[in-house]
């Protein structure tokens, strides 16, 4: 049992947790800044970025693809801003124009180019393939101390772990400016902060998290993790510091419970096959948010904790 777990489930579980945390951290600020849907837009435009970089390099190597995806994300953000300013269009609609068009372009390119030999398709892009990221070289827990086995870990694990650390550093280093500009942009401007630059940096961090997580787990978890854990955390507390910890906790819980429920749940229920882990993780994060909406101590707008049974 333990060797099977280490081989088949340990890495996907870790990847899921890292991806969830990397997305949930910037998500806290996005939710507070009413930019929650930026994550949605970015994870849609990652597909055309990957397809274009595949057509240019003709190979499915990770780094060019991540660069392509990141470029697409930045292009999308620039386009959204351009349309919003030039046409005086509300941001939501500008976003809708850009990400749907770019996604459509990506799908069209994908269908037109010969990608039958490589593993690149829309379904994969949407809900990833977390289950396939297994650790063949492992025998059991002792493999964690075995250098040879460790070097055979799926490379996705290292990438997403590095990105999770980078995002954490980004937030720790820019903590004060981020916090001040999120809650009171006017004040932040008045004391000389470059709030526009800061906002852009946040979007870049979001894009990096989205691209890295996308590589490992697909777009759908990315969107869910940007929004659900931070939104649920927002209903638990009035302090940003506490909210961040709650969101990390919720993200981790979603990843673990979702992965286990997808992999083992159906077996316990008597079915033969597992269901999509990505979908299940998103579902669990939704259930957590639903619970927070019903019982979170700071769920209402007045933000005073409710007396029990009130409302």
């Amino acid at each position: 049992m333990s060797s099977e777990f280490v081989q088949l489930s340990l890495t996907p579980l870790l990847i899921g947790i890292f991806a969830a945390i990397a997305c949930a951290l910037p998500g806290n600020f996005l939710v507070l800044r009413r930019q929650a849907l930026i994550g949605d837009a970015i994870s849609h435009v990652v597909l055309p970025g990957i397809v274009v970089s595949f057509l240019v390099t003709r190979s499915v190597s990770t780094w060019p693809m991540m660069v392509g995806a990141a470029c697409a994300a930045l292009l999308a953000v620039g386009l959204i801003e351009l349309i919003r300013r030039l046409g005086r269009i509300e941001p939501g609609a500008a976003m809708g124009v850009v990400f749907t068009s770019m996604f459509a372009g990506g799908v069209l390119l994908l269908e037109q180019s010969d990608t039958s030999t490589v593993h690149l398709d829309v379904e994969h892009a949407l809900y990833g393939n977390l289950e396939s990221l297994i650790w063949f070289a492992a025998d059991d827990w002792h493999s964690l101390l075995d250098w040879k086995a460790l070097s055979a870990l799926p490379p996705e694990l290292f990438r997403i772990a590095i990105v999770a650390v980078l995002i954490t550093l980004f937030i720790i280093i820019l903590w004060r400016p981020l916090k001040i500009s999120t809650f009171d942009e006017g004040f932040a401007n008045a004391i000389g902060m470059r709030t526009q630059l800061l906002g852009f940096a946040l979007v870049v961090a979001t894009a990096i998290a989205a691209v890295a997580a996308f590589d490992a787990v697909g777009a759908i978890i990315v969107i869910a993790m940007f929004i659900c854990p931070p939104a649920a955390a927002r209903l638990m507390t009035n302090r940003l510091e506490t909210q961040i910890f709650w969101s990390v906790f919720f993200a981790t819980a979603s990843a673990v419970v979702g992965y286990v429920a997808a992999g083992y749940g159906p077996l316990w229920l008597g079915a033969d096959n597992a269901v999509s882990a990505a979908g299940m993780i998103a579902t669990v994060s939704g259930l957590i948010l639903a619970a927070a909406c019903c019982f979170g101590p700071h769920r209402t707008r007045t933000s005073a904790p409710l007396a029990s049974g009130d409302q």
Partner: peptide, 8 residues
Amino acid sequence: RTRLYEDS
């Protein structure tokens, strides 16, 4: 019912 914004 909650204080979350519509976009969230």
